[in-house]
């Protein structure tokens, strides 16, 4: 029983990491109506950026957690203005194919610079420490930190979207970009800011991931699938839903892994398919926050 409770606690706390993976994808889809197939590679790019700042430059974890999102955000803005804005339209194929090509370019550029070796940011023991919850039930201290960061990031995104002029502009542009433009909204700039925000979230997710586990340049596609599953499970277009979806996915994986250690990923995928089959209505009710 305590073994099962431990697994549940682990599953729930990894949900924080998964929610961080999903936050950027959710922003890009919510505002630009675009699924970024390079999203997982953006997270890994964030992880490498954090790794360079924390380890190679020796600045440590906290500066990495600040600098990586800033750099990723700037990259996101440039990417959107220079490339992706040309693809916004009713046809979904061009943005999918272009982000797929981007995914391949990022993966291989990282391979070129960092080789296929595994990397990790060391945090001086916190990542292996744990906090007891009940007698015999404990969760990792670092997992709790990640969960707290996820709550702060998602809470911050929620406040930004619902309480600020920029968030209002984001929502209006997502509703009806043409009318927004006619009121003076510079939509190319707004889309640039949305992608900047999304990639900054990828930067944070990447740095948190880099401490959680070791990673390679090719580790992105798994993260894309997880992020995608999280936003479908949590309800598309709902920013708090990403936290819920992350926790549910983490729990599904924990339960699958408890039945058979090899079934951990499989259980997550099957939970996602089950949501698709049983609650397809939720999928079509897109975009209303």
């Amino acid at each position: 029983m305590t073994e099962f409770l431990n697994l549940l606690a682990q599953g729930a706390t990894i949900g924080g990491l998964y929610a961080l993976f999903a936050a950027g994808l959710s922003i890009v889809f919510g505002i630009l109506r675009l699924v970024n197939l390079a999203h997982g590679d953006m997270i890994i790019l964030g992880a490498f950026t954090g790794h360079v700042v924390a380890t190679a430059m020796g600045l440590g974890f906290i500066p990495a957690l600040i600098i990586a999102p800033l750099l990723m955000g700037a990259f996101g803005y440039a990417l959107q203005r220079l490339l992706l804005n040309r693809l916004i339209g009713k046809d979904i194929l061009p943005p999918l194919l272009v982000t797929f090509g981007l995914s391949m370019m990022i993966q291989n550029a990282l391979l070129l610079v960092f080789t296929a070796d595994t990397q990790k940011i060391a945090l001086g023991g916190i990542e292996t420490a744990s906090v007891p919850l009940l007698p015999g039930v404990a969760v990792g201290s670092y997992a709790l930190i990640v969960l707290a960061v996820a709550v702060v990031v998602i809470g911050g995104l929620h406040l930004l979207l619902m309480r600020t002029a920029l968030g209002r502009t984001f929502r209006a542009t997502a509703d009806d970009a043409e009318t927004a433009r006619q009121l003076g909204v510079r939509t190319p700039h707004v889309f640039g800011l949305a992608t900047a925000l999304a990639l900054a979230a990828c930067g944070i997710a990447g740095v948190m991931l880099a401490v959680w586990t070791s990673f390679t340049p090719l580790a992105g596609s798994t993260r894309l699938l997880i992020a995608f599953e999280v936003i479908v499970i949590g309800g598309i277009g709902s920013i708090w839903g990403t936290l819920l979806g992350g926790i549910l996915l983490g729990l599904a994986q924990a339960i699958g892994g408890w039945i058979n250690p090899e079934w951990q990923m499989l259980a997550g995928h099957i939970a996602f398919l089950a949501v698709l089959v049983l609650m397809p209505g939720g999928l079509f009710a897109q975009g209303r926050r």
Partner: peptide, 28 residues
């Protein structure tokens, strides 16, 4: 029958998930 209810971008990623499921099942 399951995935064609999804619109374009969702369909695309969901087909990838199905492929991952197949790979994991075969590996087991």
């Amino acid at each position: 029958l399951i995935l064609f209810r999804l619109n374009g971008a969702y369909f695309a990623v969901a087909t990838w998930v199905v492929a991952e499921i197949a790979a994991l099942v075969i590996a087991q």
